[in-house]
Design a protein around this nucleic acid. Structure first.
Lengths: 153, 153
DNA sequence: TATCCCTGGTTGACAGGTCATCTATCAAGT
DNA sequence: ACTTGATAGATGACCTGTCAACCAGGGATA
């Protein structure tokens, strides 16, 4: 089995490690910054963004899970915890007795609106400021290219 | 405060989301694959790689933590769990009564040697195969560039 | 309406991570 | 020796994520 899989070359190895390292540092920093300044975790933020992206401010569990690419049960746990903090609320689903809606609360809306500007500023400070517009666009293009094929691979 | 922070443009937003999305999918897939085929978590893998990278197969806690950029306590917990599974062992430090070494066990070595080829294959299948050599090098270059400045920012 | 399976969502147990706090040892200065 | 402060690492509480098992409501079929 070992024979059929060529190891990474030195250059490839360097690139790969840089890539992994960037993701590690970035997600750690962004999460810490968000938590410290707005009291929201990355998970909270992601859910709230998805909710504000919809017109009605409420979505079916399934749809939300698909939208942010999470497992069902992860979302279920997360929503339970967020409910306790009054960031979102569960609502019954009239059309389907099994289903349920997740709705953003007024408090949740306040929280994300307060958090968003700083979040954007952080993205700029940690990433955008260090790249030219072309470089950042290229990073996006390459990311999209790979991401699109990951599901199939 | 809102006024001083320009929102992301549509293009920037697209790039950023693609970037984040790639990270999410990739780490999820790699972790699942590793776990399923070798019984190791990403955390286990990272620790074992760092240990095999050293000549003696053992390192001081501090050095290991710095090497893989983890918090002290995270490493401590992780090593305790890995010890129970006989992947690593704690060893006393003669030079410094406070210190301790983490050493890879024979079983740990076997485990990582079994896991590595498939891991590399997965990196190839999910990422390298979808990019040209130039594109991948560029991805590495951009990652390194940003990562280098994150600590200071 | 009884039976079957499918689907939407929940739950409990457990691994992983962070934070604050604790213990033990070292290294200086007195 | 004796305090004092810094350093190495451990620990407990608590939050997050995964997995597998579960429960309840649809929808079809007989």
């Amino acid at each position: 089995m070992n024979d059929t899989v060529p190891w990474l070359s030195d250059d490839e190895q360097r690139s790969w490690r840089a890539f992994v390292r960037l993701h590690m540092k970035l997600s750690a920093r962004m999460a810490a910054d968000l938590q410290a300044h707005s009291g929201l975790s990355s998970a909270d933020f992601e859910v709230l963004v998805a909710l504000t992206d919809t017109a009605e401010g409420r979505v079916r569990f399934q749809d939300l899970a698909r939208e942010i690419d999470w497992e069902q049960s992860r979302l279920s746990h997360q929503i339970r915890r967020m409910s306790k903090r009054d960031l979102v609320a569960r609502e019954e689903c009239e059309e389907d007795g099994r289903g349920a809606y997740v709705a953003i609360t007024a408090h949740g809306r306040t929280a994300i609106e307060a958090a968003a500007p700083r979040h954007v500023a952080t993205v700029r400070r940690l990433v955008l400021d260090h790249l030219t517009a072309e470089e950042f666009a290229e990073l996006g293009r390459l990311s999209a290219k790979v991401a699109a094929r990951i599901d199939a691979a």
